[in-house]
Each structure stands twice: as structure tokens, then as C-alpha cells.
Computed example of a mutant assay.
Amino acid sequence: MSHVILRLSRRSTILGLSLLPLAGYAQAYPAKPVSVVIPYSAGGTTDIVARLIAQSLAASTGKTFVAENKGGGSTTIATGAVAKAAPDGYTLLANEMTQTIIPWLFPKLSFDPIKDLLPVTVFAEAPYVLVVNSGVPAKNLRELVDLAKAQPGKLNFASGGAGSGPHIAGELLKTVAGVDMTHVPYKGSGPAVADLLGGQVDVLITAAPTVTAQMGSGRMRPLAVAHPRRLSSLPDVPTAAEAGFPDFRIANWFGLAAPKGTPAEVVAYLHAEVQKVLQRADVRDKLLAAGAEPVSMTPAEAARHVNTEARRWGELVRKAQIRLD
């Protein structure tokens, strides 16, 4: 019996010693500011929710998390910068659905947007909303489709850049409704919203948080939610299915990703801390108020989600023969 106890004791000692480096690393990280790179200019949906999470992580951990906007290149500038950064947990990407689109639109990138990034978590989802500037005569999605069919190519739709979620959403509408609209890309949804409000563009299809705060301005009109259910934040806005277009369904998702090779303990730490802040009522309320639904995904679940999204949008890009402007 004493021999068995000794053997178990040695095993426990070895296990304990093996965990010491991990415990030490976890206690030390982060020892300096963590940069959360946002692949768009300020003001868009990704900027809104990424800043909220970065600020909440800073408050919760007592460490420094800095939100950094790096727009342009249809998110490839920021995505590439993070993919090529040191895999030490100090440079993170505020990733979203565009990460799963750009591989199909930029086949000659010097990095792989899927394989060179390690998902940490997906923490929120925001169904897309189709809005028009107040000068567009359409009062609902059906009227907009009829208007577009009567004037092929005359109506335009804005996006946060070629290959961005709003771009794909516009192409999805063109495909399912059989209409022709002109794409106008911007360096982020913030500038796109500004020009929609100013009347320079007609249509914007984007995640709800981007436009929720502007709904009462009188300068934009929501026509439909591209989701099977109406949003609690926009209960009077009908779904695309209600207008007769059930296949017009798209929702953005928001998460964090790190460079491939980032230590598993760092990924686990970040995932756990995000889950903690999502339990806070104020964080959840702010996400819900903006039109984003809190979700919880482990790193493995987030990886599966990214791969599924990549396949879905790759199929749309090929089917619709989407090309960069």
C-alpha cells in the first residue's frame, strides 16, 4: 500500500511541477498593454462592440487593453498586421464576419485570414438591418425591390469596404431579389452611415448597432431586419421574410482572435475574462441596447463557427461572381 501511495505522490508532484510555468505565465499576463486592433475606422458596429469589450476587460482585470482602429484594405490591413504579429497575446484582432469573406476576394494575400489567426471567442451577434436615407421613396423592402427593378443600377448601396459584411449583404439582396444596385465602398461603416444620413447614398445594410442610435434622426428609415425574428431593439421593423424574402438572412458576429501560435493558456485566460465581463448586467445591457445579442463560444466553438461562415460566404462569392470594385 505504501508503495502505491509513493507512486501517486510522485505523479502528483510531477503534475504540480508541470503546472508551475503555466500558473506563473497566467499570473504575469498581461504584463504590458494589450492592443485590440479594430479593422475599421471609428463609429461602426465592430468599433462599438470591440471598444465595449476592451474597456470592460480593462475594468475587470485591472490591466490595460487599448482599442486601436486600423481601417482600410477591406480589413486586410488590420487582419494582416495581427496575423503577422508576435504570438504572445499582446496583439489581438476584433474579428467579425469579414474575416471569413476576404479569403475569397483576396486570394493572393501574403497571409491566410483563417489559418493564421486563432479564435479566442465569439461574444456577440447582430442581425443586419436594411436602412435607406429619407429621400428614398420606398416604405418597405418590397417597394425597394420594385424600385430597384424599375431603375436597374440607379440605386446604390454603401458598405464598410469591398468584401465587408455590408458589401456581402448588398450582394446577397441582389441575388435573392434579382435586382441590380451599385456598390459604394467606404473605409468603415461609420463614414458609410454619415453619407447615408447626408443623402449621398441610398441604401445601407449593416449590423443593427451601427444604425440603432440614428433611427430617431429622421434622416434614415429602416425597412427590414435580415433575420428570422424581429429585434427587441427594433420591434416595429419587419423581417425580410415578412416581406417575402426569407433567403435574405445575414447577421454579423463579433469576437477576438490572436496570431496562430499564441500560447493556449493565454487564449484560455482571454476567453475566461471575456466570459466574466459578459456576465455583467451593464455590459449585456449595452450590447442589447445597441442591437447585439451576447453569445458565448469557447475557442473550439469559435473556430468551428469561423470555418462554417467561411464556407457559406465562399459559396455566395462564387455563385454571385462577386468581384472587387
Rank of each mutant, 00 (worst) to 15 (best):
G291S: 02
V274C: 10
A289W: 00
A194R: 11
E301Q: 15
G73V: 07
V66M: 11
V203M: 12
L147Y: 14
E68M: 08
M297F: 10
A272D: 13
G135S: 15
A67Y: 10
V203L: 15
D236I: 00
A302G: 02
A83G: 05
Y40S: 15
S296K: 07
T308K: 12
R311T: 15
G72V: 09
E301C: 02
A226P: 02
F106W: 12
R221P: 02
P228N: 08
W104C: 04
S56L: 07
K187N: 12
I38E: 04
T98R: 03
A81G: 06
V317A: 11
A162C: 13
G16T: 04
D47W: 09
T212M: 05
T212Q: 10
H227N: 14
G16F: 04
N156T: 10
K276A: 13
L256Q: 00
T75C: 05
S60Y: 12
K32Y: 06
A148S: 15
K174W: 04
R323S: 14
R51M: 05
T100M: 15
P191W: 04
A138S: 14
K32Q: 14
I5R: 11
A213T: 06
A31W: 03
V274S: 05
V66R: 14
G89P: 05
T175Y: 15
A150P: 06
H183D: 09
A264F: 03
V211K: 00
A264V: 12
P228Y: 07
L234A: 00
K174P: 03
D180Q: 15
D285I: 02
M220W: 01
G44Q: 05
R249Y: 08
A94F: 10
T64G: 00
A302T: 10
P263W: 04
L196I: 08
L105R: 08
A192D: 03
R219F: 11
A138T: 08
P103Y: 09
A177I: 09
L17P: 01
K319D: 14
E293V: 03
M181D: 11
